[in-house]
């Protein structure tokens, strides 16, 4: 039986009329896959599905999650691109996959992420060539994205998207950062109004990617966080987040807006808003989490536009009078 499988793959490859390539994935497996895969199944919605879709790769199916209404959706891909299961097939319910169904889709490439799907790798590999993508290795998001684009034979598309992002980045930077002006400081905080705590985050999807690319500087507290990416602080220490620009994110069913942040702040740290310069200057930006946490150029643009709009409205950054 084990000899039949490679034979089957060879047949598939011939049918696709493509040359085979050898790829080493993020878990170190050498995988032979078609030069231009045509039937891609993604097993992770807000990383692999988002990126494959943005790269215009032939995405056949993706995992989804069950919404409160029992209808499956793709986190991240739904918010960023309006992607739903009328456009791609449902590969599986996330975390509860039916491998037989994935097999019945006859994929020629399976994209899976480390962590969630690592234990499944051996079985997935009996279905189709399987690439393991590790989003948590600590490498820069765009470097990981570039890896995926290379695997999918979509490097040209990736470079085009990247060039457009860098153009817009330069424009925004020129507009909000006059030459010679000191780079503004930023902080990303996540408020949990339920237990009254605040988390400081070092890197947060494409949000911090864009901020770092703009040349903004993180607050000193981030440097003291050691290796960890998140730190919970007591609201009494919220002064450590007194940056020029403050970022936070919201999840549905909230709608965003500064009012929600103000309400949360008043609940967990009454009076703090009065002493923090970002609140005083109106430079608090509340972004939809599922648009800025996944890695995508569309998400990067969203962050840039939000900053450009806010800073435009409130004047230039730096030490405002």
């Amino acid at each position: 039986m084990s000899r039949l499988l490679p034979a089957l793959l060879v047949l598939l490859l011939l049918a696709a009329g493509a040359r085979a390539r050898d790829i080493t994935d993020h878990e170190g497996y050498r995988v032979t896959l078609p030069d231009a895969p045509r039937r891609i199944v993604s097993l992770h919605d807000w990383t692999l599905t988002v990126m494959a879709h943005e790269l215009n790769a032939p995405l056949l199916a993706s995992t989804g999650r069950l919404g409160p209404d029992g209808v499956p959706f793709m986190r991240g891909a739904r918010e960023l691109f309006g992607l739903d299961f009328s456009q791609v097939a449902l590969a599986a319910i996330f975390g509860r996959p039916d491998l037989e169904h994935i097999r019945s889709l006859k994929p020629d490439l399976i994209l899976a992420n480390s962590g969630d799907n690592t234990p499944l790798r051996a079985q997935l590999a009996t279905i189709a060539p399987t690439l393991m993508f590790d989003a948590e290795s600590g490498r820069p998001p765009l470097a990981l994205y570039a890896d995926l684009a290379g695997w999918l034979g979509r490097t040209a598309r990736f470079e085009a998207l990247k060039a457009a992002y860098e153009r817009r980045l330069a424009e925004v930077r020129a507009r909000i950062l006059p030459p010679g002006a000191p780079a503004p400081t930023y902080a990303v905080m996540l408020i949990n109004p339920r237990d009254g705590t605040v988390q400081v985050v070092r890197t947060y999807g494409v949000l911090t990617t864009a901020l770092d690319d703009l040349g903004f500087r993180p607050m000193p507290i981030v440097a003291g966080m050691g290796r960890s990416n998140r730190m919970t602080i007591s609201p009494e220490l919220i002064d450590a987040l007194d940056a020029d620009i403050l970022f936070t994110t919201y999840l549905p069913p909230r709608h965003g807006g500064v009012e929600e942040v103000n309400a949360d702040m008043d609940r967990i740290a009454p009076g703090a808003r009065a002493t923090m310069k970002a609140f005083a200057a109106g430079r608090v930006i509340n972004l939809p989490r599922y648009e800025v946490y996944p890695v995508s150029f569309r998400g990067l643009h969203r962050v840039l536009e939000a900053i450009a709009a806010t800073v435009h409205e409130t004047g230039s950054t730096g030490d405002a009078p």
Binding site: M1, L4, L5, L8, L99, E100, R103, Q123, T126, I127
Partner: peptide
């Protein structure tokens, strides 16, 4: 081959 491949899963 199809049955054999499916049996790999079951």
């Amino acid at each position: 081959a199809d049955t054999a491949a499916l049996m790999q899963l079951r």
